[in-house]
Design a binder for these strands. Structure first.
Lengths: 195, 195
DNA sequence: GTCTATAAGCAGATAGAC
DNA sequence: GTCTATCTGCTTATAGAC
């Protein structure tokens, strides 16, 4: 990315890529050091332990993955704008951060205590407003939890299952990216239609 | 589960749980041995290396996760039966195999070469029949790739994001399981309605 | 701040007795 | 088949020079 980063940021950038791909247990400090162009001692100088380096990477990932979504859902935008913005933002953000969804999900599963901590901090997702909007829009026929799950699932799953879907649909990287753009509109229609 | 398993099967059973939770790199042969009630030497006696033990676990997981689905999709059932059966089978199967979805997805991501190998073997997913059925049912208005992705995503995502969704929806294990049963019917309606 | 060299501990794998 | 004891190599982490 950027060649003018200081050592600490360079380490973080490189560590992000490696932790995303290999997880905490699979990543090697040596590999991070090599790819960042320094030695292991420097990693420990800036981050003390592997776990601390990992924590910084994870917390940033979680913010990217979730914080704007919480904000958005708790806002007082119109439902269809809210949904539309969620879909655009999520898909764009995941295209720009390859591997982030699996990384976060994997870690939250290995380490479920994190979920409690993280939600306790930044403020919870408040479904109340969303629920009210859904109920109004669909005359009580649509369950907010189901709607929310559908929305998130339809956006995130294509990233989680990317290798499998590429294979099944016989798409290369470029074609898959284009397909994800099409998919934005598909999801909006699917969610907001009154079937 | 079963107390009358022979040593090899007991190891496999225990290893499955541990690999599901911690992955290849995070799992410890010592932990598997302890939980199976024997020692590390026995693990190597039956499986030679950790990787070979892991491979057996993964291949079985992949079969559970995918093989019946391929069969089903390639069958000549009516579309609505096909979809309905897929949803019921997938959700029931994932309820009975906690952690399997993340495990398979994680491994296919760490190790994408596996995807090619596995699909090369058991026979590919053939979308052709499915595509034709969709096109007929929805008068050409529904794209088969999008439909397929929606179907899979809506079923699997609730398992992948289980810790997060439990927290957001404030459900305990029992309530979440009940909700998953409700969700079966919700997904069927959502997919098969003509909005 | 950055490096080299090394300590300390751990985990996978094997040898060999029973 | 099952065990204990041990080897070997790898990985995190630190000590200490510059």
């Amino acid at each position: 990315m950027n060649e003018t980063l200081n050592a600490r940021d360079k380490i973080l950038e490189v560590a992000t890529g490696i932790f995303y791909k290999k997880g905490l247990a699979g990543a090697r400090m040596q590999e991070i050091a090599d790819e960042a162009g320094l030695n292991k001692a420097m990693l420990h100088y800036y981050f003390k332990t592997k776990e601390q380096l990992f924590n910084e990477v994870f917390e940033k990932a979680f913010r990217i993955f979730l914080s704007r979504i919480i904000e958005l859902l708790n806002s007082d935008k119109l439902l269809r704008n809210k949904v539309s913005d969620y879909i655009d933002h999520t898909i764009d953000s995941l295209v720009q951060n390859p591997g982030i969804s699996i990384f976060v999900i994997q870690e939250l599963n290995t380490n479920p205590e994190r979920v409690s901590k993280l939600f306790a901090g930044k403020g919870n997702i408040n479904l109340a407003i969303f629920e009210k909007q859904i109920s109004e829009e669909f005359a009580g026929k649509v369950n907010a939890e189901m709607f929310f799950t559908d929305m998130v699932a339809m956006c995130i799953y294509p990233f989680i299952a990317q290798p499998m879907l590429k294979k099944i649909f016989k798409k290369n990287d470029a074609a898959y990216k284009a397909w994800l753009q099409e998919r934005k509109e598909w999801i909006k229609n699917k969610l907001l239609s009154k079937g």
